[in-house]
Amino acid sequence: MTKVDVGGILKDYAGAGRDALIPILQKVQQVEGYLSRESVARVGEHLGLPASKVYGVATFYNQFRFQPQGRFHIQLCRGTACHVKGSAGILEAVKRELKLKPGETTRDGLFSLEVVACIGACGLAPVMCVNGEFHAKLTPDSVRKILDSYRGKASADVHSK
C-alpha cells in the first residue's frame, strides 16, 4: 500500500483547533481510503488531542473506517424501505457469507462492507451497491450468487495475467 502524506494534508490546517478534527479526518479518509493507526495518531498530535479522543470521535460516525477498503466495496442499504423489504436478512447473509462485520475488510482484501442509511433507490429495495453497481430486489440467495460473481471476476483477472 502506498504511504499517504498525512503531513501534506495537515499543512492546510496549520494552527487549527480541535473543531477541525472531523474535516481533517474526512480529508485523510478521502486520500487514504480509510483511517490508519498512524494517521489517527498524527492528526491527534497535530491538534493536541490524545489518540483515544480522535479514535472516539471517529468511531462515533459511520462514515469513518479503520481498515482499507476491499477490491469490491459493498454498500448495503439499511434505510426504511429496505428494512421493510427485509434488508436485515440480507445483511446477515452478507456477514455470514464473507465472515465479516460492517466496517471490516475480508482477509484476502477482496470485499469490504459498509452499512448505509439510504442510497435513494427505495423502489429497488432491498438494495446494495458494489463499486457503484446497483443490485436490486435482493434475497439471501441472490446475494450469495452476486458475491460469487465478483469472486469469479477476481479469479478471472488472476488467470488472464
Binding site: 493507526r37 489517527v40 495518531a41 490524545p50 489518540a51 483515544s52 479522543k53 480522535v54 479514535y55 472516539g56 468511531t59 462515533f60 460516525y61 479503520f66
Partner: peptide
Amino acid sequence: VSAIDFVGRGCHTQVTTAFNDGLNVSS
C-alpha cells in the same frame, strides 16, 4: 493522560483505549 475515552455510539458505546488495544500498549 487520556488513555481511555468513549468509543462507538449508542448501545455499542464502550470506554476503551485508542483502537481498542490492550491497556498495556496504551498511554
